[in-house]
Design a binder for these strands. Sequence first.
DNA 1: TGAATAGTGTCTGTGAGACAATATTAT
DNA 2: ATAATATTGTCTCACAGACACTATTCA
Lengths: 234, 234
Amino acid sequence: MDSILNYDHPFVCSDAVIFSIHSYEPDSYRKLPVPKLCVALYKREETPYKDFWCLPGGFLNIDETPEENIKRNILKKVSIYDCYLEQLYTFSQIDRDPRARTISISYLGLIPEEQSHKLDCNWFDIDFKDNNLQFVNNDLFLTEKNLGFDHADIIRYAVERLRTKITYSDVIFHLLPERFTLTQYQNAYEAITDEKQQTANFRRKIIGSVEITNDIATSKGHRPAKFYKKRNVK
Amino acid sequence: MDSILNYDHPFVCSDAVIFSIHSYEPDSYRKLPVPKLCVALYKREETPYKDFWCLPGGFLNIDETPEENIKRNILKKVSIYDCYLEQLYTFSQIDRDPRARTISISYLGLIPEEQSHKLDCNWFDIDFKDNNLQFVNNDLFLTEKNLGFDHADIIRYAVERLRTKITYSDVIFHLLPERFTLTQYQNAYEAITDEKQQTANFRRKIIGSVEITNDIATSKGHRPAKFYKKRNVK
DNA sequence: TGAATAGTGTCTGTGAGACAATATTAT
DNA sequence: ATAATATTGTCTCACAGACACTATTCA
């Protein structure tokens, strides 16, 4: 037993890909009409990868679980104190960290737009150009090469997981407010898949997962939408 | 940087849930007519969990990847030198190993029946009683409590993953021989899901994933089945 | 009234599920 | 012929996709 206790073993860390949807209303500071899937990044201030943009995360202490660790680190690095989180994949290329041998337990996180705007955190819209991700925050434009470590790989993997998962689960509700219009729902879906849906078909597909409320959206110059909420029955 | 290099950090290990399908032909040493999903276990010879049955796995060295590590350990502990493997989940309860703080990167493995019989390895049929797994190898009967560590949790998780995955992917072919009858295919599917399929419907569902060969099975007293193989086009 | 967005109707094809029937082999 | 397993046919229903249509608000 003691023999295992002092052999040279890898370090463990966590990294989280936290997504939100940013809508950019026409009356917003930007004129982009398309809702975008976006990700929370922070700029590293130490070597290695100083000044590169990274996913929030950090080294796992001996007395904490990876879930506790990632929560601690997303609060510290992107100011998010609460969001949906699920384990994604464990990345373990030998050379993924130049400081030491590390493996990273990655997490997928989701947070609704309204909450995301309240945080001291840099959100980057994700553009899917060919097969390469690009990241945009106002005037800041990043490619995969501007990200530290293997974090572009992790984000790519997280996008795939999210796209798959919205087809058979309810996770998309973690990106929506408590009450939402079906257009908001469809916008979120399209932002994730990067594919337009036909409204009538889309609504038939998802109508069973929501229930209508008595609230009605305010709008200008057109018919206002009804608000829905997640249906909680199985 | 050096500061990270000597802090007390968790150990990393791997564990593999390797499945096969055992058919038990009526002329076999057993009279069970139902094909069974089974899992490769070995009996631990050291503390902790001495004499408990465990998944093959071991501690990750500083210079190997988890994939290399799990391959090394399944060869050492259940004599499997080659099989399909994919990462499953990383288990990390604080107290999962009484020796030290460890996290385990788990893998899902699949191996066809003919290969499984050639190995020096104990295969346990899995019975799904209520919500509790039971494991049977001839006269040996195990419940979840006879397994070491959190390995019953890991097996449970692996079964779920496998059940989900056969509905949208081709992984089931890793449990079948190169050439197989559609009855073999259906048997494997039913062993995994623990649910009977209607043959006509099942065949229509999967017929696009296979192509027929010129070979015909040998059989006694009834119509022989045609052999199929995996269709390799996309 | 018209612009703008919300929301619905209909047709078609595909595929799953239930159930019944036919086909082919060895004895 | 019969037993035993392989293999196919038919009907129904649910749902996805394409596309055209109607509804409601404010200016």
